[in-house]
Every structure is written in C-alpha cells, then in structure tokens.
Design a protein around this nucleic acid. Structure first.
Lengths: 190, 190
DNA sequence: GTCTATGTTGGATAACCAACCAATATCGTG
DNA sequence: CACGATATTGGTTGGTTATCCAACATAGAC
C-alpha cells in the first residue's frame, strides 16, 4: 500500500479554501481559485473532494476545530468571567481581518443560510456550539434562565459589529465595541 | 415621440430583483430569475439596465428611498426617544422576513463589501445614512460626543440579531433582543 | 398614411465553471 | 523486478450565465 508522497495536499487545499472563502465568500470562490492558491492542479481536486460542497464542509470542519481549541484554551481560566473576556479579546486580536472580511463563521452563515444545504447547516452548528459555550459561562456565573438571552446578546453584538466593521471598513468600531463589551461583562452582577 | 405602453416594467424589474436579492443574495440571483419573477422577457432586461450591476444599484436606490420614507414617518414623533423606539419596532414588525432572509441592507453589505464595487458602496451608504440618523437622535437626547458610539452600538445589535435569527431560523431571537433594546433606549439617562 | 423614436422579443455568443475522465506516475509490497 | 493501490495530471464536457444583437412591434408626429 502506497503513501502520501507529499502528504499534506488535502490540508493545503482546505487552508487555501478557508482563506479564499473568508476573503471572497463561498460562491465567488471557484475551484480554479483554490487550485491556484494551494498550488494543487485543478484536475487533482476531485481526488480529494468529490464536490465543491465537500470542500465547503471541510472548511467548516476546520473552523469547528479551531474554535474547539480556542474554547479549550479559554477554559484554562477558572473564572467564567475571564473566559468570556478571552472570547471578546479574540475579536480585538483579529480586528484587522475582521474589518476586511468579517467574521469567518458569521459571514458564511449569512451567505449560505438563505439557500440552506449541508454546508449552511454545519456552519450554523459551529455558531451554535459557540453560543452554547457562552451560555454555559453565564450559567456558571449564576445567571440561570437568563443565560440564554445573555449569550445571544453577546454573540449578537460581536456579529453585528463585525458586519458594520466590514461594511464601513472601520477597525475602530471593533475596538470600541470590544471595550464596551469587556466592561459589560466585568460589571455584570453575580 | 412614443410612450411606455405598459409603463411600469422598470419598476416591476426592480421590485422582482429586490425580492430575489433579499431572499437569495446578489450573486445567486440570475437575470433569468429576475426575468421570470417580473414577467419581463430576458432579452428585454438589457433595454432597461445595461448590466446586472446596474440592476443591483437600482435595488439599493429603492432601499434608500424606502428608508428615507421610514425615517420621515418616524420623525413625526417629536421625542427622539420615541423615534428610536419606532426604528427598533421596525425589526419587530419584519421579524418573520428577518429570520428568513436577514436584513435586506445588512446581508447585501456583508456579501458585497468583500469584493468592493459600486453596488457595495451604495449599499454601505444606505447603512451609513441610517447610522447618521440614529446618531442624530442620540445627539438630540443630549448624548453629545457619545452619540456616535451609541448609534454604532444600536445598529450593531440590530444587525447582529438579524444575522443570528437568519442562521438559527429563530424569530424569537428578534423578539427578545427588540424588547431588550426598547428597554435600553427607554432607560437611557438624559 | 408614412416615418421615426421608443419599446419588445427570441435567439445567439462568448466566457466561465464544476464535474468528469482517461492516461500516466509513484511507491510500498510480495 | 513486477504488481497493484494510491496519487497525479491535462484536457474535456455539459450546463449556466451575463451580455449582445438583429429583427420586429407600437404609437405618436407630421
């Protein structure tokens, strides 16, 4: 049985696809784009992915893993308040990319949720897992039944400011809203 | 000089395009779609619009006019607080369409701002005019230099919850966030 | 009635794209 | 070495799309 001589072609493809989908959107990204960006010949794509949707799904899986790792690192802090702070800090760190191309998950959901399909569903699931984690943190803070609303409110604020920053090409919007949310979390009773 | 025998074909085209662009997005909407939806033969589109971008621009103009009219009606109320309440109420009224297809302006900005172009710019301008109006209301409430931040915060919350409602197909998200924002505006000091 | 600017139409066209395929190369294994 | 599974490649194909065009219709002007 032979092996992968170069090996990481599949990874290179998903990385290239993730970058392009984030920057251009899913529909506007062609297989030829992904081929060029990754250096993998166009005819070779079908060996690793049977369809464009399959690539989209792999991109979302990659995002899901990335967020899993992030949440794990945030949970290093014992205080749920500090965890939420780390989450908000993420948008601050990525503010440049955010104001250039928006939130990788949010813009994908916005683009694909209108037509439905498997890729849209898995993208929404990534967003849902993030929302669930945020809600859990509020629950740990003793917010009880209000936790779901608080989680929606926080995630909504992040998504909203990402969209505005993208539309207005304005990094400062992210900076200011992040500061606001940090204070909001810190001053939460409980 | 002859006249428009049927007349409102141009309007019918823009209406159909606006509906489809909202429901499906700009890229996924084809000229054939618009032709079918409006009942105007495909070959006739080029007589009214020289390109698909021209149709997109007309759709955004139509949105701009609609928001102009809305703001005018909101300004019937003398109290800026009531005006902002009316604005928030709009999302409540349109919550079904909002959770099905997102905000007509917001999703368009998200889709097109990544590639730039004239349509993207005009869509962003519509969002900007709305933001300016909101800021003006805060200013009238005596919020001074903080008005810009408050306007961004409010518009961001509306856009964020629209995106979440679209992704999760959940009308309740809009209802709850709208109630929250109504209270937020009512309880604002000043 | 003839003429002409304004509409209207079906079909053509060139570009693009995702998907497919037959042919070739690579390499571990027996 | 030969065999076969894995991997790779260029080129093709069928379908879609925006755009264009030549021909035709209509109706007001004169």
């Amino acid at each position: 049985m032979s092996r992968k001589p170069v090996g990481d072609k599949r990874t290179r493809l998903v990385n290239a696809a993730a970058k392009l989908v984030h920057e251009q959107g899913f529909h506007r990204t062609t297989l030829a784009d992904i081929s060029e960006e990754s250096g993998v010949p166009l005819g070779n794509l079908s060996y690793y992915f049977k369809s464009k949707d399959a690539i989209g799904h792999a991109v979302v899986e990659r995002l899901a893993c990335a967020y899993d790792a992030l949440r794990e690192s945030w949970e290093a802090a014992p205080d749920p308040r500090d965890r939420l702070t780390s989450f908000i800090q993420l948008t601050m760190t990525n503010r440049d990319a955010l104001s250039r191309s928006g939130c990788p998950v949010g813009t994908l959901c916005a683009e694909l949720s209108k037509e439905g399909g498997l890729v849209a569903d898995s993208a929404t699931r990534v967003l849902g897992e993030l929302r669930g984690w945020i809600e859990a943190q509020f629950r740990l803070l003793g917010k009880g039944a209000a936790s779901a609303d608080l989680a929606n409110h926080l995630l909504s604020a992040i998504q909203g400011v990402s969209l505005l920053a993208l539309a207005f090409h304005d990094v400062k919007l992210v900076e200011r809203e992040a500061r606001y949310l940090q204070r909001w979390v810190r001053d939460l009773a409980g």
